[in-house]
């Protein structure tokens, strides 16, 4: 008889556990379809010199980081000092300037410092769509063969950089 009373309790605990796990998940973290796929190609003018262009092929043979940012993006401000640290450790960071105004973007970088090797200027956001960008900031790691090996949605934290980003960046030969 006492066992019968346990059943609802067990069901309750099971549901509570499942819902609890659900609460800890980030609904914005939509699994990227681009992992282990070739990085979408694009050619965009540079923010600082619109007569010059950037194309991901220019970085073939090295591991680099693509950070999608905008001057209107509030969480980009939080991750900015962290990105600067990453850049100072010798990582090539390309800052895809997403749906921004050129003068506002340049001013933003002047005020805070520029961690980006280049900032391709994606005014229309069309390249962002190719990369499946949902909301800025987003961060990708592209390997020597031009394949996307890692993606992080949302502002980077010191923990994420140390535990996820740096290990991927320091992995010189992709285990395949």
């Amino acid at each position: 008889m006492s066992k019968k009373f346990l059943i609802p309790l067990i069901v309750f605990i099971a549901i509570a556990l499942l819902l609890g796990i659900g609460l800890t998940m980030n609904p914005r973290a939509i699994p990227s379809t681009l992992i282990s796929k070739p990085a979408p190609n694009f050619t965009l003018p540079l923010l600082h010199d619109q007569t010059r262009a950037f194309n991901p092929d220019q970085l073939r043979g090295q591991r680099w980081l693509l950070n999608v940012w905008a001057s209107w993006c509030v969480s980009c401000r939080y991750e900015h000092p962290l990105l600067t640290e990453v850049a100072n450790s010798g990582v090539t960071i390309i800052g895809l300037n997403y749906k921004d105004k050129a003068d506002a973007a340049i001013q933003w970088l002047n005020e805070r410092g520029n961690p980006y090797t280049h900032s391709p200027f994606d005014e229309s956001g069309r390249v962002g769509i190719e990369w499946g960008v949902i909301a800025v900031p987003e961060t990708f790691v592209i390997d020597e063969q031009g394949v996307i090996v890692y993606k992080y949605t949302g502002p980077l934290t010191a923990e994420v950089i140390q535990q996820e980003l740096m290990p991927v960046l320091n992995q010189t030969e992709a285990p395949r």
Binding site: I30, P31, S32, T33, G132, I134
Partner: peptide, 8 residues
């Protein structure tokens, strides 16, 4: 759409 944003 699916290639970029997934089944979602």
């Amino acid at each position: 759409m699916r290639e970029r944003y997934g089944d979602f």
